[in-house]
Nucleic acid binder design. Structure first.
Lengths: 202, 202
DNA sequence: AGCCTATCTGGCACTTAGTGTCAATCGGTC
DNA sequence: GACCGATTGACACTAAGTGCCAGATAGGCT
């Protein structure tokens, strides 16, 4: 159907297949568990070959965590857009609070979270993603600290970013444990307050 | 040689083999790299079968990180031995500072650190170990915060422990980057100071 | 010594993740 | 219709990790 060739067709096709495979795979994961689902299962269910699966996703974990890289980019943009008057902590936390959530409904999110925190290989990958976010956000925090964005000697920015992201993680885990009974945002502020002693504005 | 049967023989034998295999494997890792060394290589070099290797180490990463679990236990003991007058942060940091290092010389440690921070699978496992430490240390921190040690609703202790361990990680990375030119302890205090604004006593 | 049991060991087969290669195919263009 | 570039599936391969089984060996018991 070459009706709207606004982009290369196979680019659109590729994205469509990617999304479709991810959708089917997530369905299988939530149904029978992440580790119990093999890549062969996914390939069969999605109607593609095993080999083709690996052309769309580098690893099985990437199906669940693949979007996190893009999400980190959004947070970085949000962070750089924060007013210059905000100090490093405030800007970082507000960037996280205001970053657009690219997500499902809460019930599905909770299921995914439970899977994420309960599956070792997924947990490990998710921590690695946090490391990527860290590298992404640190330069801007260095700037707000009055240091050159590429100054590797000053580890203050690294420490601050790492701690805030750790707070996100702790909050996420608490949110999952409590089955979403408290808002993720409140939990994040609570965690940060425990570390800092004060919270940020709206 | 059943000269000193102070313990079961095969217990001592097992520990000896474990240590020997670890020694040989670490040699191979440092010589040709972690990922470039297969388990078959290690088994051949150690004179055991592939199958037996997995009876001593669950994964290849465990050779490098296996001792960390025991190390976490030492830190917990150190933490519980800190005077009651010390607040959560101070006790935690001092416990980390005074915990006995079960280590090699600095040159070897630096090589291992570089391998650790430079190999994704090792990095991931090391972060998982930090999670174990977190679970190990959180109850005592909760106690110092005046909460029940098993109170899962209060995430303050989780946040504090997570942040301090993240500071350890950031300090370790900076130490590795700077090739050990600054002491790890100073870097840790610097990282914590960036988060808190003040340091602990000696 | 002889027996019994628990443990360790090596070998084999198996599953799963992930990669390299290659010939066939399909969309889009001239 | 012919050409070009990207995609695809099939096959073979490496490497991690697990299950199973039969043989060796240490230690205890009589």
């Amino acid at each position: 159907m070459p009706t709207t060739p606004d982009q290369k067709l196979w680019t659109r096709t590729r994205q469509a297949v990617h999304a479709e495979v991810a959708r089917i795979a997530m369905g299988l994961f939530l149904e029978r568990g992440f580790e119990a689902t093999t890549i062969d299962d996914i390939a069969v269910a999605a109607g593609i070959s095993r080999r083709s699966f690996f052309r769309y996703f580098g690893t099985k974990e990437d199906i669940v965590l693949g979007d996190l890289a893009a999400h980190g980019e959004l947070i970085r943009e949000e962070l750089e857009a924060r007013p210059a008057a905000e100090d490093a902590w405030t800007a970082l936390i507000n960037a996280l609070r205001h970053a657009p959530r690219l997500g499902q409904d809460d019930v599905t999110m909770l299921k995914i979270s439970k899977m994420l925190y309960g599956t070792p290989s997924l947990r490990a990958r998710s921590l690695e993603k946090h490391l990527q976010w860290q590298a992404l956000l640190t330069p801007e925090i260095r700037r707000r600290l009055g240091v050159a964005p590429d100054d590797e000697h000053d580890l203050r920015a690294d420490a601050i970013v790492a701690c805030v992201l750790m707070c996100v993680d702790v909050a996420g885990e608490a949110w999952t444990r409590s089955a979403g009974s408290q808002s993720l945002e409140d939990l994040l502020l609570e965690a940060v307050a425990a570390v800092r002693g004060s919270a940020a504005d709206a």
